[in-house]
Nucleic acid binder design. Structure first.
Length: 267
DNA sequence: CAATGATCCTGTCCGC
DNA sequence: TGCGGACAGGATCATT
């Protein structure tokens, strides 16, 4: 499940491999995976990469010719830097062709991932309703208090909502709430400022640690060279039987999502 | 307007 | 060994 650290890891990989290379075309191998904005101007390819950007879980590749490519990996998507001629995965849903000799297949068994091609000026219309970037100075306890004070949903659900904070998914929210010692089913609005400071502190810490470890590979996530990340080795509650203090972990279903937590450590 | 539930989809795992 | 069913879940859409 690619979340912020995994998405950033993919972008870091693109910066090391694709760099400012020329994208010659993007082929679509599964209906609906590649979306062309109706306002698209001229033929967007070929064009060299100008810059990379991440917003929440979106990978944004800006091209020199004022077009942009927005990639969302959803649950099982991955991009793998490859050489033309390498065999094609049966789960390849699209393919970014680079120069004359390279390709970046978009492999996504569950087919939820999307690649959108649009004018750079229109990127905002696809990357909408996103809250603050959790690693930015904008993400503070005061910011969270303002976002959560009127919410009726549990804290777990509120943190998964991309309009609260952009880039968190199920794994990291479980880990953050464990570190902040908050039960996932607690009422968002009832959490006071000192606790929210803990949430903010641990959010930034967990994401930074995961980033330093190239993300979490629970199932499908892979780096651009198809290697796994390493942060799965440091998870404390997600899919665990017991927490680091040896208390049994429970799994609560909240808003249809599994929520791993320690009933002893989290109140 | 906000919260909830269904939906998309396939590989994997479990029980019988 | 095989089969049916539950499960995994990010974002979007429809419904309450």
């Amino acid at each position: 499940m690619p979340e912020l650290p995994e998405v950033q890891t993919v972008i870091n990989g693109l910066q090391d491999t694709l760099k400012n290379g020329v994208i010659t075309s993007i082929e679509c191998n599964y209906p609906g995976t590649v979306i062309y904005d109706p306002e698209l101007g001229d033929e967007p390819f070929p064009s060299a990469v100008k810059a990379y950007e991440r917003r929440g879980k979106y990978i944004i590749i800006h091209l020199e010719n004022a077009h942009s490519i927005i990639v969302h990996l959803r649950m099982t998507g991955k991009l793998v830097w490859s050489t033309v001629g390498e065999e094609t995965s049966k789960h390849q849903r699209a393919c970014i062709l680079v120069g004359d000799h390279h390709k970046i297949p978009f492999i996504d068994p569950r087919t939820f991932g999307k690649i959108t091609i649009c004018l750079t000026a229109n990127v905002g219309s696809y990357v909408t309703k996103l809250g603050a970037e959790p690693l930015s100075p904008e993400f503070t306890a005061d910011y969270l208090l303002q976002k959560l004070s009127r919410k009726k949903s549990p804290i777990k659900t509120a943190l998964l909502d991309q309009s609260t904070v952009a880039g968190l998914g199920n794994i990291y929210v479980c880990e953050i709430l464990y570190r902040a010692k908050i039960r996932p089913d607690r009422d968002s609005a009832g959490i006071r400022l000192p606790k929210l400071r803990e949430v903010v502190k641990h959010t930034k810490a967990v994401l930074a640690e995961a980033l330093a470890n190239n993300g979490t590979s629970i199932s499908d996530f892979r780096r651009i060279d198809d290697k796994t990340g390493e942060f799965q080795n440091f998870l404390r509650v997600y899919q665990k039987k017991s927490c680091p203090l040896d208390h049994p972990i429970e799994n609560l279903r909240i808003a249809g999502r599994s929520s791993f937590y320690c009933p002893v450590c989290q109140k």
